[in-house]
Design a protein around this nucleic acid. Structure first.
Lengths: 341, 341
DNA sequence: TTGCGTTGTCAAAGCGCTTTGAAATTTCCT
DNA sequence: AGGAAATTTCAAAGCGCTTTGACAACGCAA
């Protein structure tokens, strides 16, 4: 069933039916009723591809999903997608997801944009000096970035959390508790959030004349295995750190296993603060020793970015171009005063 | 840059250029070279919507993502998607994801199909007597179901794991260890896998003249909180169960917390077997007491389903219509002989 | 009655691609 | 050399929709 058939059925022209459907004013109310009724009866749905071709709009936002045979799937991605979806469903928008090798992200993004399948782009996993930004700007397609790109002029639309402040504040808390030996379990070194969190920690330490030792820093993908390995390394150091900052509750999971296996007590021998993306699977309050965290909901960020993206496509703007969300520092039992020894 | 412009640039007709691009034989090799060269230089990409409109194929597979403001995001969904993506990227396919309220899945699926945006559909979260099957069959669009629908003639294309055998085997193991008091922590009662796993357990118990008590069964969404609550309830029973079957490692996470809080020892006081979807986040071997599991990789299932779906669209078939994968029973430390008491 | 502004409807063009059927060109065989 | 066959290219139609610009039909004032 297509427009033509429907209009023939009704004895109207395609134009009129199309207008009736799309809420144009220049059509008789009675006619509109009749059309709507027919749509209900026939179950007619406009062909999206044709609509897209005719209008240039498709009601969809595009994103690239990094994936590869060996590539670990990332819970953060799923959680974020849920947030996007929550908003998208309200506007009858959908997603076009292009899976791509992580090395191929720039090209994949370009393909997605040029394909003419999407109205707007969402970009995540930002890196320092991210090459995608220049490409995106040249594209004249709306986009919003989750995160920022360290070292690039921040003149693009983004939503980010204040990673630097988060870890600065977290470090300050631990400093006030008397800790002086810090370690950082971070995400991959080239990612923007990792850079900023590290800077936040270094800034706080610097104020007390302290430094972050090289061997007390780990940059890895954020899995619990890597957390375990990193923590085991820290624990074998001559000058064992007593305060750990951790970029993810996933990493913390492994780290805590290492602490337990070493027979140490979290919150007493070792204090740990992790960043909490509010993953439904990993609630800091449910850890055997509830975790002190810097918190910001990934899902909420997804909702907000979808709002901005969809709003822009629908010209419902204007939206703020840059948003920087504060994180919450939530103190639980995994932090305590520095142990006497 | 579109086909017309490109063809004018080359002094060829659109037809020839199109044919050159799509690998048709009736075009001179030299001409093809020239076209390919021009494409490289201009960065021309065919408009997908137009292609879709003209051919009826779009190189995309559609799926519905259940989502709602209160709705917990589901790790399993993300993991599965990764699997699909891993295969899709090899064929330059993408996904069209339609977020939809869980109550609206049938309608959402129909919208997605009729929209003309997708070549094939993937369907998950199957229920007993699932109403989507009849709709799908009437649609004349390829689809593959992950799971099955209990109570419906299995004449549709699916890939499922043998849930019944999995829990039957798991129960047998525990029976051999002397356990007689069983409990089941299952997923939502209307879901197909939950029905079959329960049946598997009941069958194994039946062979020994045992029954599964009503108050030793819980059907909940699979979060660690629900696992905790369910296990707490089991532990307060007069005739406390000693053998637990658990439909997810996520549930197990909560269950184990309850066991620990009650001062009991997993693998001694309580034996537990969980089904393991091989979530990267939740490795059974990394639990403080490594978990005995029935295992089947969700991601691998995703890859396989994508193969079948894409193969069908590309007419690369034939593919088996029905596949039933065996699960592995992997014994670790969370199971032990029934405690003497 | 004529003339004018509204209102409701329509035919036709166009979005960018594929594909059909025919035409132009080249190649081959006798 | 002449004609058939094979190769290469093309013009035009069509996919299903939106939108422009024109055209009836109507009511109403003059």
């Amino acid at each position: 069933m297509n427009l033509k058939q429907l209009s023939e059925l009704l004895g109207l022209s395609q134009t009129t039916v199309s207008r009736a459907l799309n809420g144009y004013p220049e059509v008789n109310e009675a006619t509109r009723e009749r059309v709507l009724q027919a749509v209900k009866e026939t179950g007619y749905r406009p062909n999206k591809a044709a609509q897209r071709l005719a209008t240039g709009k498709a009601g969809s936002i595009g994103l690239v999903m990094p994936t590869a045979p060996g590539h670990q799937s990332d819970v953060h991605f799923g959680e974020f997608l849920t947030g996007l979806g929550e908003e998208a469903v309200r506007h009858d928008f959908h997603f076009v997801i292009m899976p791509a090798d992580p090395d191929d992200e720039v090209a994949a993004l370009r393909r997605l944009a040029i394909s003419g399948n999407v109205d707007a782009l969402f970009v995540a996993y930002m890196r320092g000096h991210d090459p995608r930004l220049a490409m995106l700007k040249s594209l004249s397609m709306p986009f919003v970035v989750h995160g920022r790109s360290f070292g690039t002029e921040p003149d693009y639309p983004y939503l980010d959390i204040d990673n630097e402040a988060a870890f600065y504040d977290a470090a300050r808390l631990l400093l006030q508790l008397g800790h002086t030996r810090f370690a950082l379990m971070n995400g991959p070194a080239h990612l923007d959030f990792a850079i900023r969190r590290r800077n936040g920690l270094i800034a706080a330490l610097g104020e007390r004349g302290l430094e972050l030792a090289e061997d007390c820093t780990s940059h890895t993908v954020m899995t619990d295995e890597e957390g375990l390995v990193a923590m085991e390394r820290f624990l074998q150091l001559a000058e064992r750190p007593t305060a750990i900052l951790c970029s993810s509750t996933v990493l913390a999971l492994g780290a805590i296993r290492a602490v337990n296996q070493a027979g140490l007590k979290l919150g007493e021998d070792i204090s740990l603060i992790a960043h909490d993306d509010v993953l439904p699977l990993l609630k800091p309050e449910n850890f055997s020793v509830p975790l002190t965290t810097t918190r910001s909901s990934l899902r909420a960020a997804g909702v907000r970015i979808a709002q901005r993206l969809i709003g822009t496509v629908k010209q419902a703007g204007p939206f703020p171009e840059q948003e920087l969300w504060k994180t919450e520092l939530i103190v639980r039992a995994s932090t305590g005063p520095v142990p006497q020894s």
